[in-house]
Simulated assay, not measured.
Amino acid sequence: MSLSTFAQYNNLDERTSINARFRYHFREGTDLWIVYNEGLNLERDRGFDPRLPRSAGRTLLIKYSHTFSW
C-alpha cells in the first residue's frame, strides 16, 4: 500500500495543481489505483476579462489492473 502526493505551481498562468495517488497492491500483477487531480486558479481577476472560477478542473480516477499469465 502506498500514497503519494505532488503539488506544482505555474507562475505564468497563476495556477497550481495537486495530484494524490493511492495504490493498493493485492499480489504480484494485481493493483488498485485511486488518483485525484485538482487544478486551482490563484489569480482569478484578469482586468476586463470574465472572472475565472476557483477550480481549473477536478478528476477522480479508479484503475484496476490484473496481469494474465498464459
Rank of each mutant, 00 (worst) to 15 (best):
E14P: 06
E14L: 09
T59K: 07
H66Q: 09
L40V: 10
G47L: 11
N41W: 02
Q8C: 08
S69H: 07
F26W: 12
W33H: 15
R44E: 05
L32Y: 14
G47I: 01
N10K: 04
N10A: 02
A20I: 15
N19L: 15
F22S: 05
F68P: 01
L40T: 03
I34V: 14
S55M: 09
N37D: 07
N10F: 07
A20S: 13
N19E: 12
G29N: 04
R46M: 15
F26V: 11
E28N: 10
R23Y: 10
S4E: 14
N19R: 15
S2V: 12
T59P: 06
D45C: 04
G47D: 05
E38I: 01
G57R: 00
R23A: 14
D31K: 04
L12E: 14
T30P: 09
N10G: 10
L42A: 04
F68Y: 04
T67I: 10
R15E: 09
G57C: 02
W70Y: 12
I62Y: 09
N41F: 05
L3I: 15
V35E: 12
R51W: 00
D31T: 03
S65K: 05
T30S: 07
F6A: 11
S69A: 09
R21L: 12
E28Q: 13
D49V: 07
Y24E: 00
E38F: 00
R15T: 04
K63Q: 10
F6H: 15
S2D: 15
T30V: 15
K63H: 07
F48E: 13
G57L: 00
H66R: 15
R58K: 13
K63F: 06
H25P: 03
R46V: 10
I18H: 12
R51C: 05
E28C: 09
P50F: 01
K63N: 13
N11W: 06
N10Q: 03
E28L: 14
L3K: 13
F26A: 05
S17R: 10
I18L: 15
Y64N: 02
N41C: 05
T59Y: 00
W70D: 13
L42Y: 01
R46P: 01
E14T: 11
H66A: 04
S17V: 04
D49H: 08
E28G: 10
